[in-house]
Each structure stands twice: as structure tokens, then as C-alpha cells.
Design a protein around this nucleic acid. Structure first.
Lengths: 186, 186
DNA sequence: AAAGGTATGTTATATTATCACATAAGCTGA
DNA sequence: TCAGCTTATGTGATAATATAACATACCTTT
């Protein structure tokens, strides 16, 4: 009776060249920030990058096990903390799971900033997620108008943002289209 | 060695008349929705209302214990699920804790709608929280422009919102003012 | 090599949440 | 009223997520 979660995540045997390239990029970003993307952190980021879904800490832990090595939870959590702090991944609160930051994947100016902001130098690295309850997909969106509205409100209140999460659960376009529309109520 | 959390929440011995009034109001709201605010649910909502802070499930559990009665976790979680479904409380994901919905406390039109929305009949009962890391205060804000921005984005994407949470962590105005402003970095 | 910071290993345990199954309580219609 | 249904609760066990505390290793600078 394994204690692993029942989630059917598929981890590839080996990392794709594309993933390797992203890891190299992440490495460069860390270096630029005076931080070290150690082998272990790199491994864990690699696992997160190579699964097309949010991954739980214990999924990672399972995946890291070999006959030789049985890492304990702190190993994973420490790496996750590092990756979070350096803006390489996000935690999705509602799922207690982790995904790569889209900026690492797509942006050209990726993580130009250094992420320990205070005052009103809020960096755009704030995450917004659409979580589909049906197909479990999670997509990260970056909508400046949401962010602006949040910023404005905080400024009005004198509240200093350090981090924020915006998580929207529902049905993605695809799943919504493939369901009989349920009765409306109001 | 109690397993209770170390949080120093203060629960009053008895409920204030104001809290009682809110409970009656909640009761009426439930009735209107064809649901029953049973004695147990009422008790738990009462506890949440009477603490001026987010409360964890196990805090509630501790508080409910008497020499006669040792409720188990499902008792609390079932009541919390009910209260969430009926829009009487919110869960703060980042804290794994619960607070009353401000609409119950303040609004006149409180929870006029019935909360199992689909399609684009998104009800305003969506929560937005400012969480102070220093003093641990949590305030719920209701900013239509944030909500509008979220709604617009979702509509563009074809995403059907079922629920959402917006959680902003940082320093409240008071705490921000009482700190030496730390060095800026960018 | 010594010293100091950073990173990792390891054991134990804390904290949060759910499952599964039994019992009770409230509601409805004959 | 009571049989039968639905809803609510009790109870024991356990799952899933996360951290504390302390030891060891590793890396860099002197």
C-alpha cells in the first residue's frame, strides 16, 4: 500500500531537449540572481516541467525514488521553496500543487526581476490561473487589467503587496462545450 | 501534548447578541434556500463569527469539545462544507482557514442568490482578501473592477467560472507604516 | 586547512482532510 | 402512525500535505 497519491501523472523516462533548454535557461536566471540551481533543484524543476499538469510534492517525491535513494519530504519541499522564491514555479493553492511559471516557458524577458518586492514595485510575476474541474487542466493567464485593478485597490487601502494569487475554478472552453448545459438558477 | 494548533485564538465564553442576530439572519438565509442551519452548523458558524480572525478546522474542533462530547474532524468539515456552499463563510486557501463572508456581516441584500451558479451568472459572492503577514489580519474586499476584469478575461477564453479566490498577501496599511522601509530591489 | 555560509540527509511529527460505515433524526405519503 | 426515504451526525481509521530539529556534507573565501 504505497502512500503515493493516486494521481496518474505521466513522467517521461528522460527529459526532452526542450526541457533541457528550459533548465539551462532557469540556471542562467538563477545565476543572474546570485542563486544556484543545484543538481537536485534542477532535477525537481525538470520533473515539474516535463509533466503537463500540476504536480504534488509527494508525486515528485515518488518520482525521485530509486533503489539507491529514498528522499524524504523536506528534500522536495526545500527545492520547491527555492523554485518558488526564484519565480520558476507557482503553487496552486486550491490544488496544493505546483506548475512551471509560464514566463519561464514563454517569455523572452523571462523573470528579469528578482522577486522579493516590497513597496509598490509589484512585479508582473503574479499568477492568475484558470482551473478546469472537468479535465483538470490549469492554464496560467497574464491579464494586466486584473493586475491593475488589484494594484489600484491595494494602493487605495495602503496595502503593500508581497505576493498574490488569483485562482478561478470552473470549466474550460472545451469542457463547457461538451456538457449539456445544466439548469440555470438565480 | 495537545494536538491543537498553537494559534492563540480567543473564543468568547458566550455569543454576543450581535452574533446571535447574525446567526438568526443566516438561519433565515438558509431557510430561503431550502437548507437547514442545524444546531451543529449554527454552533460552528457562531464560533467563526465570534473570533475576529481566520479560524482553522482544528481550532473549531478543539473549541467544540466538552467532557461529554469529543467531535471528530468530519463533524467540523461537514459543517464547513455546508457553510461554504451556502455562502456564509469563505475558505482562505493560503491559510487553510475560514472567515465569515462579509456579506453576511454587512450587506443588506445579503446572499440574495443561491450559489451554485453556472454559465455566466456569476454572483458577486466571490471573495477577495488582503492578508497581512505581519499582524495576520485578513480583510475581505469587494472590488467590482477586479471582478469585472476576471469576468471579461474568462468570457474571452470561453471559461465558465464556478468559483474563484483572489488572495493578496503583504502588509496592511498599519503594519507597512510601522516598519522601516526595506531596501528596494529591481 | 579553518571558518562560515549554503545545501542536503534523516527521523520524527505536526497539520489538514477524507473514507467508510453505522446510527439517528427529520420529512413524506399511504 | 409508521414505513420508507433523505438528510444529518457519530466514529474509527487513515490519507495527504507540510514542517521541526538536528546532523552531515559541500562549497567558497581566506
Amino acid at each position: 500500500m504505497k502512500s503515493a497519491t493516486q494521481s496518474a501523472l505521466v513522467f517521461p523516462e528522460t527529459l526532452s531537449p526542450a526541457t533541457q533548454a528550459l533548465l539551462d535557461r532557469a540556471d542562467a536566471l538563477c545565476t543572474r540572481q546570485g542563486a544556484r540551481l543545484t543538481q537536485q533543484r534542477r532535477e525537481i524543476l525538470g520533473l515539474i516541467l516535463s509533466v503537463n499538469a500540476p504536480v504534488g510534492a509527494y508525486d515528485l517525491l515518488e518520482q525521485m525514488k530509486t533503489p539507491d535513494r529514498r528522499p524524504a519530504p523536506p528534500t522536495v519541499y526545500r527545492a520547491l521553496d527555492f523554485l518558488l522564491e526564484h519565480g520558476l514555479i507557482h503553487r496552486i493553492e486550491r490544488l496544493s500543487a505546483f506548475v512551471p511559471c509560464t514566463h519561464l516557458l514563454h517569455d523572452d524577458h523571462a523573470a528579469g526581476c528578482n522577486h522579493d518586492h516590497d513597496q509598490d514595485s509589484i512585479c508582473l510575476h503574479t499568477a492568475q490561473f484558470l482551473i478546469c474541474r472537468s479535465c483538470k487542466s490549469v492554464i496560467e493567464i497574464t491579464n494586466p487589467s486584473i493586475l491593475d485593478a488589484v494594484r489600484t485597490t491595494c494602493r487605495e487601502q495602503g496595502f503593500v503587496i508581497q505576493s498574490s494569487s488569483i485562482e478561478i475554478e470552473g470549466l474550460c472552453a472545451h469542457c463547457a462545450a461538451h456538457r449539456k448545459t445544466p439548469a440555470h438558477q438565480h
